[in-house]
Amino acid sequence: MLATGALLGEIEKAARMISAGSSMGDEERLLERVAAGDVESFAAIYDRYSRVVYSLAWKMLGDPQTAQEVAQEVFEAIWRSAGAFTPGRGNARTWILAMAHHKSVDAVRRQRLRAAEPLSESHVDDADVVGLALERVLGAEVRVALASLTEAQRAVVVLAYYGGYTQQEIARRLGIPLGTVKTRMRDGLRRLRGQLRVAEEITE
């Protein structure tokens, strides 16, 4: 009887695996259906992510009109290339938000190119730039995590992620060697990873 029970458990597992495609989460399955052209699943993804995608784009680009254009670009890319998402590698949320950031960075760089803002002639104080970039970052966990970095690490991570600057631009901007930027970026991200993991465990 015991063996039968174990076998039935296995069967159930297999049945779930077969009917779900694999051991995917809810959002991964949604993306799979988007790839197959399911409009309702696409609408569900939009409803879950439009706010964070739009907010990130607005924060990085500084105006709602361009943010709308970028958000539209992001969701069109999701619709078009959901088939390129591989459930085994990373989760749907990370994939979608990486796409949102990537498109926002592209737009920020286009914006800067159009404005022809030479980095060396920028008169904005770097402390202001970091302060500006941190504005409206309100998520308590993220705020606490960012606060745990050294000031030097925070500046590099914030300028890169929210400012859309490359590490070479950051080195020029802060007048420090590229190697230093790389080290601060790596150490900063690793510390954030530790902090955010701790936060996750506490809320569980």
Binding site: R51, S55, P64, G139, A145, L189
Partner: peptide, 26 residues
């Protein structure tokens, strides 16, 4: 590290996108 970056995105103060965006996207 991409998972960490995703948290940085999620940490931005949320702003509601206009309803017209939903129509255009869909």
């Amino acid at each position: 590290l991409q998972a960490v970056a995703a948290e940085l995105a999620a940490g931005v103060a949320p702003v509601e996108p206009p309803a017209t965006l939903r129509e255009r996207v869909l």
